[in-house]
Simulated scan of single mutants.
Amino acid sequence: MVEVHPKKSPAINGESSLDDLIAEFSQDPAFAKAFKDANADIAERYYSDEGLTVRTLRLKAGLTQGQLAKAIESAQAHVSRIEAGSQDVYTDTVDKLAAALKATAADVLDAIRNTRQLAARKSPQ
């Protein structure tokens, strides 16, 4: 377990988002590695039955929705809709997702298709 001893900062006093705190703590290489490993473990333990999805790609990359949104110059809500399979995705967004997730555009497209199929199965008919 990684122990984090944060200094007093605006992020600790509730003036920043969770992503700001993660970014601050991730300056410590041990925390950054532990956070990435934990996300990969979550993807494997809880979402492996989904196969390749945008969420599993994001978790394996060790990113929060907010971090991914920032990397693709979008909003966290947009990433959430993509992960839910309810958002159409333009090709430039696919390219940005691929770069941020260190995946191929083909893998991202497959993940989007799979995400939409899973969402369709989960939604009431």
Rank of each mutant, 00 (worst) to 15 (best):
M1V: 14
E3W: 12
E3N: 12
K7V: 09
K8S: 13
K8P: 10
S9R: 10
I12W: 14
G14Y: 04
S17G: 08
S17K: 05
L18H: 09
L18D: 09
L18F: 12
I22N: 03
A23C: 08
A32P: 03
A32R: 10
F35S: 08
F35N: 07
K36R: 11
K36T: 12
N39G: 12
N39C: 14
I42F: 10
E44K: 14
Y47D: 05
Y47N: 07
L52Q: 14
V54N: 02
V54Q: 01
R55V: 10
T56L: 00
L57M: 05
R58E: 08
L59D: 06
L59R: 02
K60V: 11
A61T: 09
A61R: 13
L63P: 08
L63K: 03
T64L: 02
G66L: 03
Q67F: 05
K70P: 10
A71G: 08
A71Q: 06
I72Q: 08
E73G: 10
H78N: 14
H78W: 09
H78F: 13
V79P: 07
S80G: 12
A84V: 07
G85R: 03
S86D: 14
Q87L: 09
Q87I: 09
V89D: 00
T91H: 08
T93S: 08
V94Q: 07
V94S: 07
D95I: 09
A98C: 05
A100N: 03
L101H: 04
L101K: 04
T104H: 14
A105G: 10
L109F: 13
T115R: 03
T115M: 01
R116H: 06
R116G: 08
Q117T: 15
Q117G: 14
Q117I: 14
L118P: 13
A119I: 01
K122P: 13
Q125M: 15
